[in-house]
């Protein structure tokens, strides 16, 4: 691992300033569960790490009208065990409780996961599947506009995710088919029925998290797994690797979507 400068700013403004002064070559460090492995393998060699550790106010979970607001620094373990989350969007607590492993969940954060935008991560499925809003130090970005590509988001190099606002769901569930090796999602499908309608978001299968609108339409009129049993997802743009080829992934999207709908219906 290459060396770097390490900053522990006390405020968001200081953190933004530190990022700015690193000329786009600095990186924010939250829980580090994605970033540190990247640094160890020298897939990235930032000149500076700006730790969010000392910045207060980013680890709260609260109800905000029809939204559940979760601070960016909340760890997966914190979200998984939060009564507020369990009571409002139980599917989100469950999803968080199955990210990585217990040790990773004790360090990894919501903001870190969302900003990293790993195409096989679990949180992006919930963010997109619930139609959440990503709040940053300077703006609010709708989920539909956030995951723009392979590890790609519209975040500017000095922009900091501060919270994610999840709309309360009438029904929601996440079904994951995990890689037996890495435990990342080979296919993970988040299905939700909220005030904004029905959404079906898929992680792991493609170069980025995506929605399956055909399933959404079918579920909007009949929220049952039967309604989507004949909807096939094309394998054309899906990932293919030693564990799962594109066709298998396409098949799993259907299976996991049906299971998520069944789970959402309890």
């Amino acid at each position: 691992m290459q060396n770097f400068e390490f900053h522990r700013p006390k405020t968001i403004a200081e953190a933004v300033a530190a990022l700015k002064s690193s000329d786009g070559d600095g990186k924010l460090l939250a829980g580090g569960q994605s970033l540190i492995p990247v640094l160890k393998h020298e897939l990235a060699m930032p000149s500076a790490l700006i730790s969010l550790a000392d910045i207060g106010g980013l680890d709260e979970i609260r109800l905000d009208g029809d939204n559940l607001a979760i601070g960016a620094k909340c760890t997966h373990a914190q979200v998984a065990s939060s009564d507020v989350v369990k009571n409002t969007i139980g599917a989100l607590a469950k999803l968080a409780g199955h990210i990585g492993d217990p040790q990773v969940r004790n360090r990894g954060t919501l903001g870190g996961s969302v900003a990293h935008a790993d195409p096989a991560a679990d949180y992006p499925a919930a963010v997109l599947g619930l139609g959440a809003t990503i709040k940053t130090d300077r703006r609010a970005i709708a989920a539909d506009d956030f995951f723009t590509g392979f590890f790609e988001t519209p975040l500017e190099s000095d922009e900091i995710v501060t919270a994610v606002l999840f709309p309360k769901a009438e029904k929601a569930a996440y079904a994951k088919f995990a890689s037996p090796a890495s435990k990342y999602a080979i296919v993970g499908v988040f299905v939700a029925k909220t005030g904004g309608g029905v959404r079906v978001a898929v992680t792991g299968a493609g170069p980025k998290v995506f929605r399956v609108t055909e399933m959404e339409t079918a579920l909007a009129s009949n929220f049952s797994s039967d309604a989507i049993k004949d909807i096939a997802v094309s394998a054309d743009d899906l990932n293919s690797d030693v564990e799962a080829g594109a066709e298998y992934r396409a098949h799993l999207v259907g299976v996991m979507a049906r299971r998520a709908v069944d789970a959402a219906n309890g």
């Binding site: 890689s179 037996p180 090796a181 890495s182 030693v242 564990e243």
Partner: peptide
């Protein structure tokens, strides 16, 4: 059920870590 070491046709090791070799 789980473990298989795979080289591609060029001899690159495709299962070179616990990310893709299932323990």
């Amino acid at each position: 059920l789980y473990e298989g070491c795979i080289y591609d046709d060029d001899g690159q090791l495709l299962t070179g870590s616990y990310m893709n070799y299932t323990m």
